[in-house]
Every structure is written in structure tokens, then in C-alpha cells.
Design a protein around this nucleic acid. Structure first.
Length: 506
RNA sequence: CGGGGCGUGGCGCAGUCUGGCUAGCGCACCUGCUUUGGGAGCAGGGGGUCGAAGGUUCGAAUCCUUUCGCCCCGACCA
């Protein structure tokens, strides 16, 4: 017996969280670094997860009246220049296309030739090009609203990248809507935030706080930015989705105008909202453990893996027959608006290795089937959200009939676990000393997991920002719900209407 | 872009300070035998010229110069 490591993933979360995160991605086969700096290759298992996220979100967008469309990858540079704040926000991270042809160079390689008259930027986000298009589409109030989403890739030339959390190129969806009235646009902004929150909680099993960003954290060019914020297992915050009320800023910059019922010419009101492959990172950091990935059942590409165990050829035949028919029965069971997804892993490798393979990849349920199980009409079941050794024998009929319930239980369990974790590390703080202590690690020499979410009253001003910057803390958002008690800003002593969520963040 | 670290078979590393036997080790891989409700054991085997370029030297993974890339921390950000 080889000395099996205590955990499949090393280092553990406690020992080194960032390294653990990378190790999980590698061990679970989600993605890997590519030959291009800052860009990743999303492998089949990771992409299947993203596809599941896409499918659910896409359904939610359509239920709320949106349609998909597609706009160009390239944006003329002049488009970006039209909205001043927008330029400031994105100019530094734009990839720029300046040529359209390659020619043999003097040293044998290729050199760019055919300089473009106007450089094109690779979209970091599409407000400008979509806005310019909407300007052509909108003449009358009868043309509104426009409710469009696009699934796309965008490029932001970030200084520092991290797989899924921040890559130079990433996949996302961006909704862009255009309305006749301010209220309608505001309602849309809030509606899509609620959609994101519902997705995060109901599908990702990830509790989130819905809130509004302060001015310094706002999307460049937006009037207000709403976000959902989640707590990762290292107690840092991750912005998991944003919904922006753009007011008339982009409409004015790009002349999205229409005539209203009274023949008056008016600027439209626009919104934009998006979530990205960052959600995969959020999912990893919310649920995974020191044995690898844990996938909430409602997003899992496979719900159950059947692991046949057999020695003789004779056993093999009966075990495989049993597995095949069990697979069919399971696949006829309803789950989450579809059917249960089952895989039989009959690869000719050691049983232990096979089991760990699926543990590391986060398959929700493992069911071992050997001659003994065949004989007794049962299966030996292990759940990814429980201990590796917490396996139990379940009668086959019971297993099949209860599979939906078991997956639901696991889904709920994951959410509860995450919610409990967040609750334990969230507190209301009403004085600065306590606040400072909360965000100061005990051992400054080594990175350690500390802090969490703090709800404190604040008066939005530079003084507050300077104070928290020293602690490497940011204002995540001002919660939209249960936040009506006025108080005193713990940094300035000024009266404050609301509390904000303070946290260290990704 | 600032600070730190690292590039040696598929992966993880040792060797580099103090140049010198055919460049090692673990895992993975291949073959055989054994084992089989569990990340197997034994035996045999294949694969690297040490990120790249230049230099010093009788001799360079090791010293010097230049360069490319990656990771971590910071600033910035979905």
C-alpha cells in the first residue's frame, strides 16, 4: 500500500489558498494555462460546466424578454473615445489591432504590413459598438425597448491574471438594453441583478449579497452599478455579476435618440449587465475542498458515475449488465428540468485511482457496483459533499427512486454550508478599532486566511477610502436589502444613512 | 510597471554557491509476472543536453552578458 496523501490536493486551502486554487483547477481538469500570456485553455470538463451555466442563464434571459444577437469583436478606436469616463476606465487594458497583413521580414520571420487607417480595438466590453448600432435602430418610442444579450469573448489586457478569475481573454454574456424612460431602465437594471442573484443561489449554491457600488467602484460611464458579491472560502469577496444603469451617458455620446408620443426628441436610457467565466472560479472557491472540485448538482455535467468492480470475465458480464440497466433506469429519472446524467467508467485502471479521478473532478455522486452489489441488488454510494469514506450500501430501487432527492439534498447542503461559512465570518462593526483588528492578520509574515465581511456605517468620501486602503480593504457594495438603519460613519464620525459591506477582495 | 521566486524527460524536483565521472530522483509511461471492493507489489525498459542566444574555459546545467517566458505579492480590474 503506497502512502496515500491525506488530501488529494496539495497544498491545502489552509496552507496556501492561491496555490490550492490552481491545484484544484489542474487536478479537476477544468483548464490550463495556454501558450498565450494571460489566456487559458478551457478543457472539456470546464467547458461543459460553462455550457451548463450558459444554458440556465440564457433561459432566464429569454424568460425576461431578451433575445440574443451578435456584434463585432473589433471596435473602431474612435467609438471608445466618445464617452470620456469609459475611455479612462478601459484605455489602459485594450488590445489594439493596427495591421491587417503579414509579410516576410528581412530576417526570415513575418512582419506586420498593411497599416490600418484607423486602429481597431479588440472589445473589452461592447457598450460603444452596440450603442452606435442602437442609434441606427431607434427612431421612435415604438422602437423601444431593445432587449438584447450577446454571448461573446472579450479581451482586457490585465497586468496580472489568474485562471477563471481574471484572464486576458474571457467568455461572458453582456446584455445591452435601451429604454424610453429612466424608470424602465432602472427596473431593468434591478431585474437583471435579481436574475444573477437567483442563478448564483439556486444553481451555483452560492449565497450572494445584492448591492450598489460606490462611485469609485462604479463601471466607467455608468450612473450606478449594482453587483452581487460572494464570500470565498478564504473569506475574500468576489464580485460575481454586475448590472449597470447607464442613464443617458452612452445615449448622449452615441446619439441614441427617439421621438416620444408628443413628437419630442429624447435621448434613450440604457443598461448593461454581465457575468463571465469568472463564475467558474467563484464556484471552485465556494465549494471545493482539499480533495478537489465540488460541483453543485444542478450545474454538474455528470451527476453520477458508475464504477464497475469486477475480477473475472464472468463477473464482468454480470456487473456490466447490471450497470447498463441501472444507467438506463437512472437516466429516466427527472432532475432539475431534465434527466439525470450518468456515466459508466469502465476504464481498465485501478479502482482507487478511478475513484479519486472522479472525486477530484467533483462528480456529485459515485456509485460502486461489484458482484456483491449485483447479488444483493444494491449499490455502494458515495457523495462528493460528504467524507470520502462515508459511503453506504443502498438498495438499487431506493437509489433510483431517490436520486433526484439526493441531488437536491446535496445542492441544499452545499448552499447551507456556504451560507453558514459566510455568516460565521460576517459581522456588524461600529467602531474603527474593532474594524482594524478584524482585518489585520495575526501573522504578517505569511499570508493567512483572515477577515471576512464587515457591515459598517459609512459616509462616502475620500477620507473613508484612504482609511480602508491601508488595510487593503475595499467597499464591496451598499446592500440593497435590510439596510435602513441610519448610524454614524466609523471613519469620519459623520452621520451615515446606510451600512456598506467591507472586505478584502479579488 | 515595482518587489520576490522560478525555468533541468509528460508532471514535480535535486544538482548551480565551491565548473569535471556516461545529468540524477519521485510520480507518470511501456513490457512481464503477481495482486485485485480500491489511489497495488516485484522485475525489466523507453524518454531529457539542462528556457534561448552569445561569451569565458581543456571542459559549462553550473561562471559572465543579453534575452524570452512563467508563478507569487503589490498597483489595476469581471
Amino acid at each position: 500500500m503506497a502512502k496515500a496523501p491525506k488530501t488529494a490536493i496539495q497544498p491545502t486551502r489552509e496552507a496556501n489558498y492561491p496555490k490550492w486554487y490552481q491545484a484544484v483547477i489542474k487536478a479537476s481538469d477544468l483548464a490550463e494555462n495556454s501558450h498565450v500570456r494571460g489566456c487559458m485553455v478551457i478543457k472539456p470538463w470546464g467547458y461543459a460546466l460553462w455550457e451548463n451555466m450558459q444554458a440556465v442563464l440564457d433561459g432566464m434571459f429569454k424568460e425576461t424578454g431578451h433575445q440574443n444577437a451578435y456584434f463585432p469583436l473589433f471596435i473602431p478606436m474612435s467609438f471608445l473615445e466618445k464617452e470620456a469616463e469609459h475611455v479612462d476606465g478601459f484605455a489602459k487594458e485594450c488590445a489594439v489591432v493596427t495591421h491587417h497583413r503579414l509579410e516576410p521580414g528581412p530576417d526570415g520571420g513575418l512582419v506586420p504590413a498593411g497599416k490600418l487607417e484607423e486602429p481597431l480595438i479588440v472589445r473589452p466590453t461592447s457598450e460603444t459598438i452596440i450603442g452606435a448600432t442602437y442609434a441606427k435602430w431607434v427612431q421612435s418610442y415604438r422602437d423601444l425597448p431593445i432587449l438584447i444579450n450577446q454571448w461573446a469573448n472579450v479581451v482586457r489586457w490585465e497586468m496580472r491574471t489568474r485562471m477563471f478569475l481574471r484572464t486576458a481573454e474571457f467568455l461572458w454574456q453582456e446584455g445591452h438594453t435601451c429604454h424610453a424612460t429612466e424608470q424602465e431602465a432602472l427596473d431593468e437594471t434591478r431585474q437583471m441583478l435579481d436574475v444573477y442573484a437567483a442563478f448564483a443561489e439556486d444553481y451555483m449554491a452560492m449565497p450572494v449579497i445584492k448591492g450598489e457600488k460606490t462611485a469609485d467602484e462604479r463601471f466607467p460611464g455608468a450612473v450606478s452599478t449594482l453587483s452581487i458579491e460572494a464570500m470565498m472560502q478564504d473569506r475574500k469577496a468576489l464580485q460575481a455579476g454586475t448590472s449597470h444603469f447607464l442613464g443617458q451617458n452612452f445615449a448622449k455620446a452615441q446619439e441614441i435618440k427617439f421621438q416620444d408620443q408628443n413628437g419630442q426628441e429624447r435621448f434613450a436610457w440604457t443598461t448593461s449587465w454581465g457575468v463571465s467565466t469568472r463564475l467558474v472560479g467563484a464556484m471552485i472557491m465556494t465549494h471545493s475542498d482539499d480533495d478537489g472540485l465540488v460541483i453543485p448538482p444542478r450545474l454538474a455535467p455528470k451527476h453520477i458515475v458508475l464504477l464497475p468492480i469486477h475480477r473475472s470475465d464472468e463477473d464482468r458480464v454480470t456487473v456490466m449488465e447490471y450497470c447498463d440497466s441501472l444507467k438506463k433506469e437512472l437516466e429516466s429519472q427527472d432532475y432539475n428540468g431534465g434527466k439525470v446524467k450518468v456515466e459508466i467508467d469502465d476504464r481498465d485502471i485501478r479502482g482507487g485511482e478511478k475513484t479519486w479521478h472522479h472525486i477530484k473532478r467533483g462528480v456529485p455522486i459515485r456509485a460502486e457496483v461489484g458482484p456483491r452489489d449485483v447479488e444483493s441488488g444494491s449499490v455502494f454510494v458515495g457523495r462528493r459533499d460528504l467524507g470520502v469514506k462515508e459511503k453506504s450500501s443502498v438498495p438499487r430501487d431506493e437509489f433510483v427512486a431517490g436520486i433526484g432527492k439526493m441531488l437536491d439534498e446535496m445542492q441544499t447542503n452545499l448552499f447551507e454550508k456556504a451560507a453558514t461559512m459566510r455568516k460565521e465570518h460576517t459581522r456588524e462593526i461600529d467602531n474603527l478599532d474593532e474594524f482594524t483588528a478584524f482585518f489585520t492578520p495575526e501573522n504578517t509574515n505569511q499570508p493567512e486566511i483572515h477577515g471576512g465581511f464587515v457591515l459598517s456605517h459609512f459616509h462616502e468620501c475620500q477620507e473613508v477610502l484612504d482609511a480602508i486602503k491601508k488595510l487593503k480593504v475595499t467597499i464591496r457594495c451598499v446592500p440593497l436589502e435590510d439596510n435602513d438603519q441610519p448610524g454614524t460613519c466609523i471613519f469620519t464620525g459623520k452621520p451615515a444613512e446606510k451600512r456598506a459591506v467591507f472586505a478584502k477582495a479579488y
